[in-house]
């Protein structure tokens, strides 16, 4: 395409990236607030996270629409095309992360003021790791850095380890205290949501690698 069209493509793609960053910040806010709601047993905060999820969905569709328009009007090729396709995948991952955060918030609402378990001490760590992976993987997309993306995907193993340790402890706890089965089950779902959030950062990392290299590979097999 001529230089003027090139500039128009860059401008429109930059707008899309700005929106993607905004979406990732909304999702990060949702994860952070959901964890606060969990740890502080704060149902008002949990309700706010659930309410926020509709905005996350709307922004995802808005970005996808912008990508479709960009493809239809600019006919991108090569790395431009791969970048637009990557964005379309990434926003789906972000939106689903938002769903996981809302899922945690819904569990908080179900748990109401049931006493928390000691096991919870692993949860803040899982939340922090997931949020850091999200923040970093979005930066690796903006900086177009596939090596960084690979490194971020590698961190998923730490989260998996914490997840499995948590599930083990919860299971043992259930066996010892049958009256805690309900609470433990809720917490297993929280752990599952956190683990899935990290998996989705890995999926985003795969898109960054695809965008920059054209290689379509699963990073954590």
């Amino acid at each position: 395409m001529p230089q003027s069209l090139r500039a128009a493509f860059d401008r429109e793609f930059d707008d899309i990236c700005d929106k993607l960053v905004h979406l990732s910040q909304m999702v990060d806010w949702a994860i952070q607030r959901a964890m606060t709601a969990l740890l502080e047993q704060d149902s008002l905060t949990a309700e706010a996270v659930v309410a926020n999820d509709g905005d996350v969905n709307r922004l995802r569709f808005e970005i996808e629409e912008a990508c479709i328009v960009l493809i239809a009007t600019r006919q991108p090729a090569a790395s431009d095309l791969r970048s637009v396709v990557a964005v379309m995948h990434i926003v789906v991952e972000l939106e689903r992360m938002g769903d996981h955060a809302a899922g945690i918030a819904r569990i908080v609402l179900l748990m109401e003021d049931e006493p928390l378990l000691k096991t919870l001490k692993k949860f803040p760590k899982m939340g922090e790791l997931s949020r850091q992976m999200l923040a970093d993987v979005v930066q690796s997309f903006l900086k177009r850095d596939p090596e960084w993306a690979r490194e971020i995907a590698g961190r998923d193993a730490r989260l998996d380890k914490l997840y499995h340790a948590t599930i083990d402890r919860l299971l043992k706890f259930m066996v010892k205290k049958p009256d805690a089965v309900q609470r433990c089950t809720y917490l297993m779902w929280v752990a599952h949501n956190l683990e899935r959030i990290a998996d989705r950062s890995t999926n985003i990392a795969e898109q960054v690698v695809y965008m920059m290299t054209g290689d379509m590979n699963e990073l954590n097999v």
């Binding site: 395409m1 493509f9 090729a77 090569a78 095309l81 791969r82 054209g214």
Partner: peptide, 16 residues
């Protein structure tokens, strides 16, 4: 048109 081998091809078909 999806992943050219040469940087020059990439630059040409993306209008750089």
């Amino acid at each position: 048109f999806t992943r050219p081998e040469q940087q020059l091809t990439e630059d040409y078909i993306t209008g750089r």
